[in-house]
Computed example of a mutant assay.
Amino acid sequence: MYNSLKKVNRNSIKQEIYDQVKYSLFNNELPLNEFITEVELSNLLDVSRTPVREAMNELVLEQLMIFKPRKGYKVNTFTNHEIDQIFLLRESLEIACVPFLVEVITDKHILDLQTIIEHQSIAAEKNDYYTFMLLDKEFHTYLMEIIEFKLFLKSYNVQHDLSILIGTQGLKSQGRMLDVLDEHNKILKALSTKNTDAIITSMKSHLEKSMRAFKVK
């Protein structure tokens, strides 16, 4: 009797909460200037407070949320100086990969990157900012996967998630999606020729334009 019932993995509950809140964050569904408490979140998600606290603490550690005692959790926002730092770290990591990329990138890798850009184009047509930004992350992280820079990826994922958090606002306010597609295509063209200087130039230009679009005017 009840043989099909298994213990619920508490970590899976935490992960589901984490994923749902992160989706709301990246889709601009949480008000920027309002706090939400553990009690409110546990009621909304119909779960206990413990996995909510664990999931939210993880988002705080990733700097996607901030926590204030007696107030709760709030979406993190960034100054222009902090945005400069995020993109400086991204540029440092991405440019460092270029010499290794030109040695191993293949036609299949180029086709994979082209597919990501095509999916981004579809997302842009639908004004699907969330999917567009996730595909943006996939495009950039794939370059590190090609050269198996797993240690780089751990640091890079955090920085790119911060970019996504501020990026959807930049895309909406500046109409950046079509420009990003053009910039990704220029990076792809440079990669296909294995021209190191052209790759670095196109990457730096892309990151500089994204940084300017995301900054508070």
Rank of each mutant, 00 (worst) to 15 (best):
K126P: 02
R10Q: 13
N28I: 04
N33Y: 04
T131K: 06
N33G: 06
E58N: 09
L61W: 09
Q20R: 15
D19N: 07
K108M: 14
E62Y: 04
R53L: 11
L134P: 09
C97S: 14
C97K: 10
L64Y: 10
P51I: 09
T106N: 14
L25H: 00
R53K: 15
L64N: 09
L32S: 08
F132P: 02
A123L: 06
L45P: 02
Q15W: 01
Y18F: 05
K68Q: 15
V60F: 04
N27Y: 03
C97G: 08
R49E: 12
I66M: 11
I105T: 10
S42L: 02
M133W: 08
Q15F: 03
K22E: 03
E34K: 06
I86G: 04
L41I: 03
H81M: 12
L61Y: 13
S24H: 09
E125N: 14
H119R: 12
F67Q: 06
T37Q: 02
F26C: 02
N33E: 07
S12R: 13
P31A: 03
D84A: 05
L44D: 08
E40T: 08
A55R: 00
Q20W: 11
Q63A: 13
F100D: 13
S24P: 00
G72P: 01
L25Q: 01
V8F: 08
K74P: 07
V98D: 11
N76R: 08
K74W: 08
L41T: 00
V39K: 08
H109I: 06
K22F: 04
E38M: 06
I66Y: 05
E125I: 13
E16I: 01
E91N: 11
E29T: 03
A124Y: 07
M56W: 03
T106C: 14
E38R: 00
V21Q: 01
N11S: 11
I116K: 04
I17S: 00
S24G: 06
K108V: 15
K22L: 06
L101D: 05
M65S: 04
H119D: 05
H81R: 13
S12P: 07
R49C: 09
I17P: 00
E29F: 04
P31C: 02
T106F: 14
T50K: 10
V75I: 05
E94T: 15
L101N: 05
Q85W: 13
L101F: 06
Y73T: 01
Q114V: 03
